[in-house]
Structure formats: C-alpha cells, structure tokens
C-alpha cells in the first residue's frame, strides 16, 4: 500500500458516499444516470467475486463490502425508492454498446483464461467506460448540480491517483499490470473534459453548465 493508492481508495469511497447521501438527503436522483450506477454495480460484483475465494486483508475485504453495498443501495434508491425523480429521458445512453465490446475484449485479452480472471478483466474494462452514460446525460441536460460535479471529481481523481500508484509500484516493487494500466489511462482521459470544466467553473463558484 502507498499513499497514492490509499488516497485513491479514499477518493473513490468519498465519491460513492457523496452520491448516496446526495440522493438520500435530497430524496431525488435528478441529473444522475441510473445506467452508470448499474454499470458500477456490475463492475464491483464481477471484480469482487474473489471475496468468496481469497482473503487479502481486513482493509481490502471491508472496502469491497462497502463498495458493493453502497452501489446496490444507490441503484435501489434510483430505480425503486426515488423512481419518480429518475430522469429516464435524458439517461438514454445505449449501454449495450459498452457491455458487448467490453465483454468480447475481456475474453480475448486477459491474463488467464479462467472464469474469475475473465470476470475481473471484464470489470476493469467496463469500469473505464462506466461513467459515459453519466457524462452523456450531463451533455444532454446541459448542466449538473454542484454536488454531482464533486461526485464526478472524486470519481475521476481516484483512478488518476491509481495511475500514480502504478508508477510508484513499478519503480519500487517492479509490479505492473498492463490491463489495469491501459484501462485506467482510458478511464482518466474520459474525465479530462470534465476536469477542465470543474476547475474553471465549479471551483470558481459557478454552476457547471455546458453550451447546449
């Protein structure tokens, strides 16, 4: 464990908690892409099946349980409890265009052709594009609530910190996982446009609105 990975995990945890609290406190999921949240729940489910097979550490196990629990709770709030506030018309990204290619790629390019490893690889590839429905929804509505932008910033920052963690681990431990690194670079690049808007607008107290 190094400081970059620890802060990456804490940033990821913050993002998940911010979103869950935002929906719970405001009793509304307006502006939130339910499709992205379903993809994240799939990402955690397929990645953390090793909860059943191997124990790494208390930290590892507890964080995985928290991620899975919160992501399913978020999906439940969006599609069940606060369903009336779900903006389905703007959450129209075709996720099958993500899941099918990612599934195919996971079968073709992986470290080991075993079920758990292919599911882990699928989860890594899926996570890199899972935010697309949310970014697409913001481009369609032309704006995002400030709390949603903080959620997105933490979500994007987490994998950016993981990139630094991988540089650290390669240099100090000689460890690198090309699949996770390439997917992590793609994932972080997808946030660049948002990062620019976040820094130039939200951090200056303005609302995030896109030229519609």
């Amino acid at each position: 464990m190094n400081i970059f990975r620890l802060f990456g995990d804490l940033s990821h945890l913050a993002a998940i908690i911010i979103l869950l609290l935002k929906i719970w406190k405001s009793r509304s999921c307006a502006g939130i892409s339910g499709k992205s949240q379903i993809l994240f729940a799939i990402v955690f489910t397929t990645r953390y099946l090793d909860l059943l097979t191997s124990f790494i550490s208390l930290y590892n196990t507890s964080m995985k349980m928290i991620y899975i629990g919160c992501s399913y709770a978020t999906v439940y709030l969006i599609y069940a409890k606060f369903r009336a506030t779900y903006d389905g018309n703007h959450d129209s990204f075709r996720v099958e265009f993500l899941i099918v290619p990612v599934g195919g790629l996971a079968v073709l390019i992986n470290h080991d052709f075993s079920l758990l490893e292919i599911l882990w690889t699928f989860s890594i590839y899926l996570e890199s594009v899972a935010i697309l429905p949310q970014l697409f929804m913001i481009s369609k509505t032309g704006e995002a609530e400030t709390i949603t932008t903080h959620y997105l910033f933490c979500q994007g920052l987490y994998r950016a910190l993981y990139l630094i963690n991988w540089i650290w681990r390669f240099y100090f431990e000689g460890f690198f996982d090309m699949i996770a690194i390439v997917a992590g670079v793609v994932q972080t690049i997808l946030y660049c446009d948002f990062f620019y808007l976040y820094v130039t607008k939200v951090l200056k107290g303005k609302k995030l609105s896109l030229p519609a």
């Binding site: 990975r5 995990d9 590892n60 470290h111 963690n165 390669f170 460890f175 996982d177 090309m178």
Partner: peptide, 10 residues
C-alpha cells in the same frame, strides 16, 4: 514483472 496471482488492489 509478472502479473499478480491474486489481485491485491480494489
């Protein structure tokens, strides 16, 4: 460097 046997990252 070889890939990890068990994935130790979240």
């Amino acid at each position: 460097a070889d890939e990890p046997a068990a994935h130790d990252e979240l």
